[in-house]
Write a protein that binds this DNA or RNA. Structure first.
Length: 629
RNA sequence: GGACGCGUAGCUCAGCUGGUAGAGCAUUCGACUCUUAAUCGACUGGUCGCAGGUUCGAUCCCUGCCGCGUCCA
């Protein structure tokens, strides 16, 4: 025991707690448990007494199983679902009389999320598989001991019941209980039974509670809203989001499997991190005394596989990038990457639109999704396409009214002149109107103008900017950054941005007629990048030179540039990579779009959180499992 | 990294200009055999995030720290 938290307390000495017949629960010698308050500690003690009382009734305190006949799923699967049995062939609720005549019996299990005792009877609501069913327990039906058990139940307990389906006076489908089996006790207090966890932080830290208590967020209704008006759902319930996330993965696998792609798994532990521009997490292999980095992308391994003749491969797995956390970034995130021999980036544009369409239909049954209060249409005909250069000239016109010509991208002088005019315009007319921006759900116009001005002025004020831009590499970087500043926030509806500067694309093939530009595209939905694709560079010499260029970038201080030449990857290209196109799609971000989640933390079950408790050393030992820095 | 905001009972939240804290739910006890945010009656529950400072006196004002959120970089 190296460290403990402040509130650890001793809760039990060694003894046998329950010994009714076969129901024996032994406490191990003594143990420590954590309580956050006196209230919790007292509740825990009271629940242990209830457990003893339940054991005294002849029920097991912690039984091993319950033989249920029906689930509470909304749809029938392998195990019959109970709820559809309350409906007739047309899907209308069966009447109380019809249910009584049918006498449907079932055994179901679930967690008690509401309980109402009324003297010698009571109602409770069971939650299982995300669905609810009311049960009705009458002393006359279940007998004295079972009703005593019912009175010992608490919110959060798990029970199994058998009984017959009925409908109450108020029309609710209800299981009239014949036998009641105790399954497990909630020893700690639950969140508010009506509003659930309102504390966002607790929702992430205690996802186990969030998953069965969260009912989502709704917009506040206006004071004059008509009676019965339903407020708009701003955030779907946590459980629903993660069910959909699983559906996204299933749909993607089906999409690729049916198109002849092979699912593969490549290393997460890399000796050389490559395939993306990002800072790394490093770790250490003890037995081999070897520094390892968690992968930032699977790209270079997947292309090795294409060299090996696996013409179509895909991988869905975690990437790790050592960077800040915000609405669209978590240090570990799930990436789909796929590669296809004999294809180029144009082929992947079409495939991408098809993929998004199919996944949306599989997951939501519709191509429309609401994100951040805006309706997004994912139908292929609604996608827009701009080259990066078009996007810059188009959105600088919309935002600042500036007519820019294609030749601004041809030389450092032209682009600097353009930036200067744009900055001055943004500064001079901070209150000019921009209906297009407003209608795209943006912030106030003046604020946006200031943002643009400070963004561009930031470029301009860098000491020696002219000298830095004097190389084409830096021109390319400036163009890419200008694109992000001017265009990215507008890309709410699905948009493909194609043809990227060579300088920011060390693994892409250059365009045949424009050596400073590469065959690469990214697609944007909801105002952020969802995917990135390109025609793969397959010339080993060119690739090696670009890696060397990356090393120089790193020496100049770019911490995201590649740190080492992956010579084996260059060698693999030396054996011949066919013309190939590849793409990466951020699964978390795609799930955000499809579930209307405004932050990546709402689509990751356990997003990275800082530890909250003060940890104190108890003795001189190192904490268990310490990893090397 | 910066700006702003938040942190009060187990949960959801009030708390005016500085005078040592309230509600609902949950918990505990009692009544109730068709309730459903059940109802009715009684009770319990707090280091007001942490540490300093100002003050006769701090949940409130100031500073720092921790955690979270929003926007920005």
């Amino acid at each position: 025991m190296g460290v403990v938290e402040r509130n650890w307390r001793r809760v039990g000495e060694g003894h046998s707690l329950y010994s009714e017949g076969r129901n024996i629960v032994r406490e191990t010698s003594y143990r420590l448990s954590q309580f956050e308050s006196e209230f919790e500690e007292n509740l825990f003690a009271a629940r242990r007494e209830k457990l003893a009382a339940i054991a005294a009734l002849g029920q097991q305190a912690y039984p091993n199983s319950f033989a249920f006949t029906h689930t509470l799923s909304k749809t029938a699967e392998e195990i019959p679902a109970l709820l559809p049995l309350g409906l007739d062939a047309e899907g209308a609720p069966k009447t109380a009389e019809a249910l009584e005549a049918e006498h449907i019996t079932a055994a179901v299990a679930g967690r008690i999320v509401a309980i109402r005792l009324q003297g010698k009877a009571g109602f409770a609501t069971l939650l299982q598989n995300g669905a609810r069913l009311q049960i009705y327990v009458r002393k006359d039906d279940v007998g004295e001991p079972a009703f005593e058990l019912y009175k010992l139940l608490d919110l959060g307990d798990h029970v199994g019941v058998t009984g017959t389906l009925m409908r109450t006076r108020t029309g609710e489908l209800t299981l009239k209980v014949q036998t009641l089996t105790f399954l497990a006790k909630a020893m700690l207090p639950l969140p508010d039974k009506y509003s659930g966890l309102g504390d966002i932080e607790l929702r992430y830290r205690r996802r186990y509670l969030d998953l069965f208590t969260d009912t989502g967020d709704f917009a506040e209704l206006a004071g004059d809203a008509a009676e019965g008006t339903k407020p708009e759902l701003l955030r779907a319930p946590a459980r629903e989001v993660f069910v959909k996330r699983a559906a996204v993965l299933r749909s993607l696998r089906n999409f690729f499997d049916t198109r002849g792609y092979l699912e593969v798994e490549t290393p997460m532990l890399h000796t050389i991190a490559g395939g993306a521009a990002a800072r790394t997490f490093t770790t250490h292999h003890n037995a081999e005394d070897m520094k390892l980095t968690l992968r930032i992308a699977p790209e270079l391994h997947l292309k090795r596989l294409v060299v090996g003749g696996l013409d179509r491969v895909y991988e869905i797995n975690r990437n790790f990038r050592n960077e800040g956390i915000d609405r669209t970034h978590n240090p570990e995130f799930t990436m789909l990457e796929f590669y296809q021999a004999y294809a180029n980036y144009h082929d992947l544009m079409d495939l991408t639109q098809e993929l998004v369409k199919q996944v949306a239909m599989d997951v939501n049954g519709t191509l429309l999704t609401r994100f951040n209060g805006v309706e997004i249409d994912l139908a292929p005909h609604n996608w827009r396409k701009y080259s990066m250069r078009e996007a810059i000239t188009n959105f600088v016109k919309i935002e600042l009214g500036i007519d820019a010509h294609e030749n601004i991208f041809d030389s450092v002088q032209n682009f600097l002149a353009f930036l200067h005019i744009a900055a001055e315009t943004a500064k001079a007319s901070p209150n000019a109107n921009s209906e297009s921006w407003k209608s795209s759900g943006g912030r106030t116009d003046a604020r946006r103008k200031r943002q643009i001005h400070s963004g561009i002025a930031g470029f301009e004020s860098i000491p020696g900017i002219h000298a830095q831009l004097a190389t084409s590499r830096n021109l390319g970087k400036a163009i890419a950054e200008t694109f992000e500043l001017l265009a990215e926030p507008h890309l709410i509806q699905p948009t493909i941005i194609y043809d990227f500067p060579l300088a920011v694309s060390p693994l892409s093939k250059v365009k045949a007629d424009e050596p400073e530009w590469v065959e690469r595209f990214e697609f944007y939905i909801g105002g952020f990048e969802v995917g990135n694709a390109f025609s793969e560079l397959n010339d080993p010499l060119d690739q090696r030179n670009r890696f060397l260029e990356q090393l120089k970038e790193r020496e100049r201080g770019d911490a995201e540039a590649m740190a080492e030449v992956d010579e084996d990857y260059v060698r693999a290209l030396g054996y011949g990579l066919p013309p190939t196109a590849g793409e990466g799609i951020g699964i978390d971000r795609l799930t955000m779009v499809l579930t209307g989640s405004r932050t990546i933390r709402d689509v990751i079950l356990f997003p990275l959180m800082r530890p909250v408790k003060a940890v104190v050393e108890v003795d001189g030992e190192q904490p268990h499992g310490e990893s090397a820095e």
